[in-house]
Design a protein around this nucleic acid. Structure first.
Length: 465
DNA sequence: CTAGGGTTAG
């Protein structure tokens, strides 16, 4: 049976999304819109789309396309700096990639410049990609450049590589700074299962006479929050207090989360009050943590009432505040309350995030309210909100509902067309959906087809425009 | 001056 076309979504107003992970050509959500105007008139090729560096069709400046000797005569570092200073990190990246391919050895200062430029622009995955094609061990960079790189690895979830690089840096005899240590604490915190490593780093810092700062303490405590190490967090926190360390909002917020994650509302409340007693200002994140803790404990109404408290204290909620409450109502099965909060936040001018929409969509799927889901999807699109893998998996789940089975394959194809790589959850959902309509092994067959079609390649090409 | 931390969704 040939599936009917997917029910049309409401039209999308002209809107521009600047998400580089989003493919404008293959994505039906943005396909109809115009590409954002470039800063310069030249098209910007992806640094990864150049199989041959001598391809004359590439829109490089003239000197770029001329012979190797000409480029060697140039001050390449100065050129890279100039491009960077002009604020054009995309061109800087292209130039840098060209240098990697065409110079005998890229100069260390060039690496420092590109690392700094991409770090400043939060282009962490691009920084990792560019640097990974360089034999870094043959260089000695500035400690700040190494620190930025370590941070880029942390943000790209390449924890092992960060650990390796950190060891290399120390082996070179370079002195890590407080910032380097803080970044490594963050690496181990996000990597998980590394509490002893964290303690080791702290000892190292003390040995070197490096004083902890707010970044150190908040990172360590948030590691405890992630790992559920309540006692360890309390011990660390009390020690800081006894040493009269000045504890700021971020550290207190991390501490608040330790109890929040542990489901300990009374302790979270105690910490929240302590902030006020000690003159530590509470911000939206403090309130978000407290709201989340209430919601986890099943107190949705109390959480929602904190919105008024925030207003009375002059603290502006954000989309996270609303998402926390909406998701809470969703999990509690209180669909109307959740939808009304979504409506309220939009009416007040808050922009729902992809997380906000995902929690609403997930709730509606659970209740099999597919018609309302399509409505929300339409809103999402008209907001210019880019669906991510969670959204697509939720839409796949929607197709597993009665009467929607026929859309499963189409949904899966569109998901991969959009450059979203299916995860285990996608396949579980897919198999469940196919299970309803008949053939179970169609999911795997489809997966093989899709990988062969090379949708991974698509991802590579979309990193830059 | 330059490099770093805390909140939300399946």
């Amino acid at each position: 049976m040939k599936p009917k076309p997917f029910p049309p979504l409401p039209p999308r107003p002209p809107q521009i999304t600047a998400n580089l992970d989003w493919h404008p050509l293959t994505n039906p959500w943005t396909r109809s819109t115009t590409t954002p105007a470039s800063r310069s008139s030249l098209p910007k090729p992806s640094p990864f789309s150049t199989p041959s560096s001598t391809n004359p069709s590439l829109p490089y400046p003239l000197f770029f396309c001329s012979s190797k000797h000409d480029i060697l005569a140039l001050d390449t570092v100065g050129l890279l700096k100039a491009v960077d200073v002009a604020g054009d990190w995309e061109r800087a990246a292209i130039l840098f990639e060209w240098l990697i391919k065409n110079e005998e050895k890229v100069e260390a200062p060039a690496i420092e410049v590109i690392v700094r430029a991409l770090g400043r622009e939060s282009q962490h995955s691009l920084a990792c990609k560019l640097i990974d094609s360089i034999p870094l061990e043959n260089y000695e960079l500035d400690i700040r450049a190494y620190t930025t790189l370590l941070h880029a690895y942390a943000r790209s979830s390449k924890y092992q590589r960060a650990v390796k690089l950190f060891a290399q840096v120390k082996a070179k005899g370079l002195q890590p700074t407080i910032v380097t240590y803080n970044v490594m604490l963050d690496v181990f915190s996000k990597m998980g299962g590394s509490w002893t490593k964290i303690l080791g780093l702290l000892d190292e810092m003390r040995e070197k006479g490096l004083e902890f700062d707010e970044f150190t303490t908040s990172t360590v405590i948030s590691a405890c929050g992630r790992e559920g190490l309540v006692d360890e967090a309390v011990e660390f926190f009390e020690k800081l207090k006894s040493q009269r360390f000045s504890l700021g909002t971020v550290t207190y917020n991390a501490f608040l989360q330790v109890f929040g994650k542990a489901g300990n509302l009374p302790q979270a409340l105690r910490v929240f009050r302590e902030m006020e007693e000690r003159g530590c200002s509470r911000d939206a994140i403090s309130y978000n943590e407290l709201i989340a803790t209430n919601v986890r404990a099943g107190f949705c109404e109390e959480g929602a009432a904190l919105l008024d408290t925030m207003a009375s204290k002059g603290i502006t909620p954000n989309s996270v505040t609303y998402t926390t409450l909406i998701a809470g109502y969703g999990r509690a099965g209180k669909v109307e309350e959740a939808l009304s909060l979504l409506h309220q936040m939009k009416a007040l001018g808050y922009i729902p995030s992809v997380c906000t929409y995902n929690s609403v969509l997930g709730m509606l799927v659970k209740k099999s309210r597919t018609k309302e889901m399509l409505q929300i999807l339409g809103q999402m699109r008209s907001d210019g909100c880019v669906p991510n893998r969670v959204t697509w998996n939720t839409m796949l789940a929607m197709c597993g509902k009665r009467g929607m089975e026929q859309y499963v394959s189409q949904m899966f194809v569109e998901m991969t067309n959009c450059g979203i790589e299916p995860d285990r959850d996608s396949f579980n959902t897919l198999i469940a959906a196919y299970g309803r309509s008949g053939s179970c092994d169609r999911a795997m067959k489809l997966y093989e087809e899709m990988t062969e079609a090379g949708f991974c390649l698509l991802l590579q090409l979309t990193t830059l425009f």
